[in-house]
């Protein structure tokens, strides 16, 4: 029997993704489906499986009257909507400028990657000290002319911006590196042709580099959206959601609900709200990619 062409292609494709599929089914999908079921229950995980109690969709109703949840949701959205675009734009510009106009590229890239590889506790503590009343960051703000700078992490208004600044700063290196690896495979001949046509740097950046890197940008925007919506470690180390609920983000609350309040069902249901948000954002971007991502 001779396989049809398409069937053969299908088979080849699935063989290629087989290792991935197995790992995915076992270690990701199963726990995920479990969490979906749990989200419709009341479950204190320390009390074992016998303790799982079906409660219909109550969790999904309750959360909208829970100020901790609604505050967390708003903070998370503010966080993601500022961090993602700023990181992407800064990283793209930096990656290209470093690649085309800089000496000492390797040391600079390594330096930018440092916050990403340094111990997250070290990064957080350094920023706690930067933001403290005698810290370098506060001093800098004073020098710019602000006489009474805010208490940053201790201030209800400024704590979240302070965390955002830190996150962008420490995440840049990662994005720069991803861009750099993509830039390495830019087709040279196209640039040479553009040079011959007398195109300026700015033209080349917008007409050649940005479109060529758009699949990478697409990747970065989608993945940093997901990770930004799931920000957790710096919050836990630096502010524990405070002061008040000013830096209370979703995953921090999900964590608190699951392991502090012992309400696994409620935590799971909040995660699924998070899921719906992320899924929608990703779907919209996926649909929209045809307009700006060129493969």
């Amino acid at each position: 029997m001779k396989l049809s062409r398409q069937l053969k292609t299908d088979l080849t494709g699935y063989v290629f993704i087989l290792p991935n599929i197995i790992g995915f089914l076992l270690f990701t999908l199963v726990p995920m489906v479990f969490s979906l079921i749990i989200s419709f229950t009341d479950w204190n995980y320390t009390q074992g499986f016998g303790n799982i109690q079906w409660n219909g969709g109550v969790n999904f109703v309750e959360m909208w009257g829970d100020k901790w949840f609604t505050d967390s949701l708003i903070n998370t959205i503010v966080f993601a909507v500022t961090v993602v675009p700023l990181t992407a734009v800064l990283a793209l510009v930096l990656a290209v400028v470093i690649d085309r106009f800089c000496f000492a590229r390797l040391p600079i890239r390594l330096a930018m990657f440092m916050p990403y590889i340094s111990n997250v506790v070290a990064v957080a503590i350094v920023w706690v000290m930067m933001y403290s009343p005698w810290g370098p960051f506060t001093r800098m703000v004073q020098m710019v002319g602000v006489e009474t700078p805010p208490q940053w992490l201790g201030d209800y208004t400024w704590a979240l911006p302070a965390i955002i600044i830190m996150t962008i700063w420490s995440g840049l290196g990662y994005s720069v590196m991803i861009y750099t690896s993509s830039i390495s495979s830019l087709p040279r001949d196209v640039y040479e042709a553009a040079d011959i046509d007398g195109a300026g740097e700015v033209t080349k950046f917008f007409k050649l580099t940005v479109p060529f890197l758009s699949p990478t940008t697409f990747f970065l925007v989608i993945t940093t959206f997901i990770t930004s919506f799931q920000v957790f470690a710096p919050i836990q180390i630096m502010t524990r959601g405070g002061p008040g609920t000013s830096t209370h983000v979703l995953v921090y609350y999900i964590y608190t609900a699951a392991f502090n309040f012992y309400r696994m069902g409620y935590a799971a249901s909040m995660s699924w709200i998070l899921f719906v948000i992320l899924f929608t954002i990703t779907l919209v971007q996926w649909r929209g990619q045809k307009k700006w991502v060129s493969y």
Binding site: Y131, S132, P133, Q151, W152, G154, P243
Partner: peptide, 9 residues
């Protein structure tokens, strides 16, 4: 103050 305790760890 509490703020000092937090911001200066």
């Amino acid at each position: 103050t509490h703020t000092d305790s937090v911001t200066q760890k």
